[in-house]
Design a protein around this nucleic acid. Structure first.
Lengths: 230, 230
DNA sequence: ACCTGAACACCGTTCAAGT
DNA sequence: ACCTGAACACCGTTCAAGT
């Protein structure tokens, strides 16, 4: 019975958790995390579905592994900078890691328990705040306030990239103007700033950094006040 | 053929989208949103699965309907208060609505497109900021910065309520102290404040309001600066 | 002892057959 | 014309039968 060259090449390399994760990440990059199934990954690897279960206990464990792959490439914290710069640069590094995989933030949100890698990242961030002069209590509040922003994403409620044709978008804008006057006014103002825009026209990176700095400014103010009161 | 009394009582009331949504919300409250299937809802209503599709086009439309049920009970904005109080009270009202349904925030996050009800809510919030003296640009940034906090939730990365028995928790704490020294220190400090605590011991409502106020304070400062510069 | 095909207990949704 | 049972094309995972 002739096996294909590809299947032979595939089976030469032994199946490992790492190979499974690499295939899963590639598949999610291509088709989205929703169309990720154990059966499809197995097929992609030229392997029977049950073979995966030798290396991952369940689909959940595999999804956690995918999160770790993404979080694992975040830069180590700066060594000789103040807390604000250290946190800021690391958050932006986390953001770059996440942006490489459009499904990543959604996957992290959907997991009910954080992985050891994510907990370790958070532990390191707490250390930066404590060494930066935050009290334990303020550090605690800061971690809650920052939330997923520490991992480089914020929960966007509006999807920015509708793929409707222009004429449909024009009709939609007309109807929106009546039903949602304030949103329409805002969107019109944004578009006015940049005519080449698609979708709602928000600069996600700018908005992320704006919110991040707003948060960091607020925390710095509380830290200074705390130091003064002690 | 004898139908049960319950089935008869059920079938007397005609099937409507509202009845389906009520059943779906009740089922999600009880068993979580993950175990929500069209087939189970149909069963609960004493109806054949396909009967649901006369009233909802798809499962996605039904999930959107569930979001609308929750968002629909958020209080209208105050009439005669300043922007900060108006936003703050409404966000806290949204939070009360969400807390009644543990699955709601996760469901809202997971939807890719917001429902008209959610868009309408956001439109109204934008209006409050604009009338409160925010420029269009600052309003836009503020909406992004607030994100899902406007709907009363923040993305918690740590689940606060582990249901392990105390002895397991003690072992876990021991191991955590070694692997995650900063988290352990923080958790110990929080526990010290309140001995009666379960889980990590975070006061979610306090943390939410802390972050909300941090955000609102920052925005108020930017608004004042903007007014001064014009 | 290891591997894996078939099977189990589900999904959301289509569609044709029955009334 | 309406309603619905069976079927389709999937799932994640169990388990027993085969090597």
């Amino acid at each position: 019975m002739a096996t294909t060259i590809e299947a032979e090449a595939r089976s030469r390399e032994p199946l490992t958790k790492e190979r499974i994760l690499r295939a899963a990440v590639a598949l999610a990059d291509e088709d989205g995390v929703d169309s990720l199934s154990m059966r499809r990954i197995a097929q992609e690897l030229g392997v029977v579905p049950m073979a995966l279960y030798k290396h991952v206990a369940s689909k959940d464990e595999m999804l956690d592994g995918m999160v770790d792959v993404v979080v694992g490439v975040i830069d180590a914290p700066l060594e000789d900078a103040d807390w604000r710069t250290t946190i800021r640069e690391r958050v932006l590094s986390a953001r770059r890691a996440l942006l490489r995989h459009p499904w990543a933030s959604r996957l992290i949100e959907s997991r009910t328990a954080p992985t050891p890698t994510v907990i370790g990242y958070m532990d390191s961030m707490i250390g930066i705040l404590l060494r930066g002069g935050f009290s334990i209590d303020l550090t605690h509040h800061a971690m809650h306030a920052m939330g997923s922003r520490l991992l480089g994403f914020s929960q966007e409620l509006f999807d920015d990239t509708p793929d409707d044709p222009p004429e449909i978008q024009a009709i939609a804008r007309q109807q929106m103007a009546e039903a949602y006057p304030n949103i329409s006014e805002m969107v019109a103002a944004i578009r006015h700033d940049d005519e080449t825009v698609v979708g709602l026209g928000c600069d996600d990176q700018f908005e992320f950094e704006f919110a991040l700095d707003l948060m960091l400014d607020g925390l710095e103010r509380l830290r200074e006040r705390e130091g003064g009161a002690e």
